[in-house]
Structures are given as structure tokens and as C-alpha cells.
Amino acid sequence: MFRVFCVAVTLASLMSCAPQPDCRNWRTYKFFVVASADDVAGCLAAGVDVGATDRDGGTVLHLAALGAKDPAVINILVDAGLDLGAGDKAGRTPLHWAALINETPAIFRALIAAGADVSARDMWGQTPLTQARLASNAAAISVLSRVAGAQ
């Protein structure tokens, strides 16, 4: 019995070694790279500033679109009232940001299903698909070209 207890304690301590998001890092790309939907919901419940922007004018939805791997993170933020059409200082929407480096097709599908405009243009006239092509982001190109072609 003691051996089973020791194994359980050891496993629990190993699981706690995984990177855990810290709500103090809420407004960072690094937060959303490791954050689960539960982490985001927990930070929202703790009263983080959902209206905060970074130096480029991006919202936390922009940051989540850039780094999240779990589409539930996107859904939670949209349900919390974050604007899919919000542009940063250059007019780039969260979908534009995702097209730059996020390689998780489910993130693009979540943004689009929630109402992101695939034809939105930034101040240079670029759409999210244009940005995906410039960044050679195959996952983004695949999803966005199918949606753009269907319109």
C-alpha cells in the first residue's frame, strides 16, 4: 500500500512540473502557447483585463490566435466578448495574426466558425490568406484558401 502511495505522489509531482500559465502573463504570446481552456477560463474568473492591448494594439484574442493550440481557448475568449474584427495598429485582425505563425488548423476553423472575416484587409490591403502565403504557413493556406474559395 505504501508503494502505491509513493508512486501516486511521484506521478503527481511530475505532472506539476509541466509549464503552467500564470495569469500575470495574460497579455503575452507565451501565456497562450501553453494555456489550456481551463487556464484561460480560470484567468477570466480571476478578473484579468480582457480589454488590454499590447504595444502593437493587439488584444488577448490576437495573442491567442497567434499561439493557442486548443480551439476552445478561442471560443472562451469570443464568449467573453472579445472582438474577432478588432484590428491592431495596422488593421490586422486575430485571423491575420494566426495566419503568421499558428500551424494549428483547428484554430483557424474556430476563428472562422465564430465569425472572423476571411476577407478582412489590413492597412496594406492584405487578407489573412495573403499573410499566410507570405509566411509560407501551409496550415493556414490550406484552411483559408478553402474558405475563400467557397465564398
Rank of each mutant, 00 (worst) to 15 (best):
A68T: 10
R121L: 05
R133A: 00
T28H: 03
T127G: 08
F2C: 03
G51P: 02
A132S: 04
N102V: 03
A139D: 13
T59I: 00
L44G: 03
A12S: 14
G85D: 14
A41H: 07
A135I: 09
Y29Q: 12
M1Q: 15
H62G: 07
A116P: 13
S142G: 02
V34E: 14
D83Y: 04
M15I: 12
T10D: 01
V7C: 13
A98F: 11
A64K: 06
E103Q: 13
D22C: 03
G85M: 12
T127E: 09
R146D: 13
A41M: 10
F2W: 11
R3K: 14
A12F: 11
F32R: 10
A68W: 04
D22F: 00
N25M: 08
W97A: 12
S13Y: 11
Y29W: 06
G51M: 03
G91F: 09
A138K: 11
S16T: 11
A116F: 05
D83C: 03
V33N: 10
G58N: 05
A114G: 03
D39K: 02
D88T: 08
S16N: 08
G42Y: 09
Q126H: 01
A98G: 08
F31P: 06
S36Y: 01
R133K: 07
A52P: 00
T59S: 13
T93R: 14
V9H: 10
V118E: 08
G47R: 04
V50E: 12
A135T: 12
N102E: 05
Q20F: 02
L134A: 04
V147G: 13
Q151F: 02
T28Q: 07
V9G: 12
I112D: 08
P105Q: 05
F2V: 11
M123W: 03
T59A: 05
G87R: 15
V7F: 12
I141G: 02
